[in-house]
């Protein structure tokens, strides 16, 4: 177990290293543009060169990378080119905002999709199953950038119930959170439902369920006591991986609703070639991706004794 965790942490460090190198090289493809982004399109060639020199852009790329890496490891993420303040000052509050959005989405998605998935998987091929399955295909087919204007049109334009932006300018406002959460949940719940359904349907085919049914147990007891426990192991992994998806999937929603979160920050950083900000965001993203994957694997091992002991 310990060896497993240590190996995972090693892989994570290696992955983060490779990703950070790739990003540096990728952003290296367009030198000079950073200066235009910072100084504006009307700056002279001379001004740009001065700025690039002052910020160390003429040093060889490996030297810049190494100095960034040294600083990063010691917790200094560098200064944002765009905001002109340390990256951490911007990054952590934004990440917290996205955390709120993600938590609210999960709180909606998990109960709904588990319930629907179990209902559909209980009797595979039944009318209820087909309805839920096709319904979940339909909702997953509506991309977030389409459902956001659609739901906006309904709840903001026609009904006038909800605010159309989520800038949270006058402090935190829960009503501004409803539309983004709705958009994210609508897109996401179908996938978790289908995974839960598949897992449930598989369990319902097993011998011990047949035995339980044949020995005359009430259907409720069969489902609640025998089937659910095993059927919910696989969805656990899927739900853990949704956390990772939520971190990057929110880009569209945050952009549309002007929500000040991690995804919007990353988009802004990419468009402005804010290299230290991009690197820091990417490291956070990779860290969350590998960490949730590891927790998912550990949890799976813990929940499923067959894997633990073999």
């Amino acid at each position: 177990m310990l060896i497993f965790v240590i190996r995972r942490i090693g892989t994570m460090a290696l992955t983060m290293l490779v990703v950070s190198i790739l990003l540096f090289l990728l952003l290296e493809l367009q030198p000079g543009n950073v200066a235009i982004k910072v100084l504006g399109p009307y700056s002279s060639e001379e001004q740009r060169n001065l700025w690039l020199e002052a910020n160390g852009y003429f040093e060889p790329v490996y030297q810049r990378y190494l100095s960034w890496l040294l600083n990063f490891v010691t917790g200094d993420f560098g200064e944002s080119v765009r905001f002109k303040v340390p990256v951490g000052e911007i990054l952590w509050p934004r990440l917290a905002n996205t955390g709120i959005l993600a938590a609210a989405t999960l709180a909606v998605v998990v109960p709904i999709s588990l319930l629907l998935g179990v209902l559909a998987g209980m009797r595979e091929g039944s009318k209820l199953d087909r309805t839920i399955s096709v319904g979940s295909i339909i909702t997953t087919s509506i991309p977030e950038f389409a459902s956001a204007p659609l739901l906006g049109a309904i709840f903001v334009f026609w009904l006038g119930w909800l605010p159309g932006t989520s800038g949270m300018i006058d402090g935190f406002d829960i009503t501004q959170l409803i539309l983004p959460v709705m958009v994210l949940a609508l897109y996401d719940f179908g996938y978790v439902t289908r995974m839960t359904r598949a897992s449930m349907a598989e369990v319902m085919m097993t011998h011990y369920i047949r035995t339980a049914v044949l020995k005359g147990l009430p259907y409720r007891v069969v489902i609640m006591k025998h089937a659910l426990r095993n059927a919910l192991i696989a969805p656990f992994t899927v739900i853990m991986l949704q956390i990772n998806w939520l971190l990057s999937g929110v880009i569209v929603v945050e952009f549309f609703f002007a929500y000040k979160g991690f995804g919007a920050l990353l988009l802004e950083a990419s468009l402005n070639q804010d290299i230290f900000m991009i690197e820091a965001c990417a490291m956070v993203a990779v860290f969350v991706a590998v960490a949730t994957q590891t927790i998912a694997d550990l949890g799976y091992t813990y929940l499923n004794p067959r894997i633990r002991f073999s």
């Binding site: 892989t11 992955t15 490779v18 990703v19 790739l22 990003l23 990728l26 952003l27 493809l29 367009q30 990772n244 998806w245 971190l247 990057s248 999937g249 880009i251 569209v252 990353l266 988009l267 990419s270 468009l271 070639q273 991009i278 965001c281 990417a282 993203a285 990779v286 991706a289 590998v290 994957q293």
Partner: peptide, 20 residues
């Protein structure tokens, strides 16, 4: 492939297209 897949896919697209 693990390295590329561990990267949130949309983030990858945004960074690539914004850069190139």
């Amino acid at each position: 492939s693990n390295v590329i897949l561990s990267f949130p896919i949309l983030v990858l697209y945004v960074i690539i297209i914004a850069t190139v």
